[in-house]
Design a protein around this nucleic acid. Structure first.
Length: 280
DNA sequence: GTGATAACCTGGGTGC
DNA sequence: TGCACCCAGGTTATCA
């Protein structure tokens, strides 16, 4: 499941190969990828333009093209970008042909991945601002800022972390790992965290994301980097997908339950379950 | 405004 | 072996 570290890994690998090249042709093989825009509309907007920058915001990969044209792609759950794949794999949704003869494929078995074109920096900013909150690896992601975001929130802290409009880029894996690192139960209401817990959570989020980037992401089912290689962060999971195994910190068994509709893993000795509130 | 839930989608696993 | 069913989850829309 590509989250911030996986998208950042892709960005770092692709940037030297894409920036400065021309996007000769973009062939959308699955119209769903760019809906509601028509494939021809997207292809016409980007055809022949030089790639000036390859950025990332949250889990979005941002292609900055010349003339202030922006291609915004999202891998969602099972999307991957393959550079010069030896053959065209099943579930290839988009083909990017570069001016230097190389090729990039957007492969996505579950067809959740998306791409869209935005004309002008203002349109890009508005598009991202409507969807994404603070970038957790930027200086603005402080304990004070996180506390302000959480204030008054009754939703479980895990649901809060998964809400991209609050903090951008955290998905199911890194939410579980960060909450374990901070010793906070996923069901604790976000607004009920103490100042110390918020500070610990902020640090644990940053640590988990940085460790994920260092390991070139986590591969559970589908994630591969543009060269087709797997990440290794799954080997460092403390709790995620480790139900029944001993917690590396205390030895108590990791338990699995559902929060915000997502499979959630925690050590309920290190992460104390909040007591149910008594009715008034 | 907030929180919960369904829908989208398909490969893989399980049970019969 | 083949079939039906369930689960996984990021984002968006909808509802209470």
């Amino acid at each position: 499941m590509p989250e911030l570290p996986e998208v950042e890994t892709i960005r770092r690998q692709l940037a030297p190969r894409l920036v400065g090249r021309r996007l000769e042709e973009l062939e959308v093989l699955d119209p769903r990828w760019c809906a509601p825009l028509a494939p021809a509309e997207v292809a016409d907007a980007v055809r022949g333009r030089r790639i000036e920058a390859l950025g990332r915001r949250g889990k979005y990969l941002l292609w900055g093209l010349e003339d202030d044209v922006h291609l915004v792609t999202h891998l969602r759950m099972t999307g991957t970008l393959l550079y010069d794949a030896p053959s065209t794999p099943a579930h290839t949704r988009v083909r990017f042909r570069l001016g230097d003869g190389h090729e990039l494929l957007f492969v996505d078995p579950r067809r959740f991945g998306t791409g869209t074109v935005l004309l002008g920096g203002d349109a890009l900013d508005a598009h991202l601002a409507a969807r994404l909150g603070v970038e957790p690896l930027e200086p603005g992601f402080t304990a004070q800022h996180l506390a302000a975001l959480a204030r008054g929130r009754r939703a479980p802290v895990k649901a809060f972390l998964l809400d991209q409009r609050r903090v951008a880029g955290i998905g199911n894996i890194y939410a579980d790992e960060a909450l374990h690192g901070a010793g906070i139960h996923p069901l604790r209401p976000a607004g009920a965290l103490t100042r110390g817990q918020v500070a610990a959570l902020r640090d644990a989020v940053v640590a988990a994301l940085e460790a994920g980037i260092e390991a070139k992401g986590a591969t559970i089912d589908d994630f591969r980097d543009p060269e087709g290689a797997h990440g290794s962060f799954q080997d460092a999971f403390q709790v995620h997908r480790r139900a029944g195994e001993p917690c590396p910190a205390c030895g108590a068994p990791v338990v699995k339950f559902t929060v915000a509709g997502r499979g959630t893993y925690a050590c309920e000795r290190c992460q104390r379950r909040p007591r149910p509130r008594r009715a008034a």
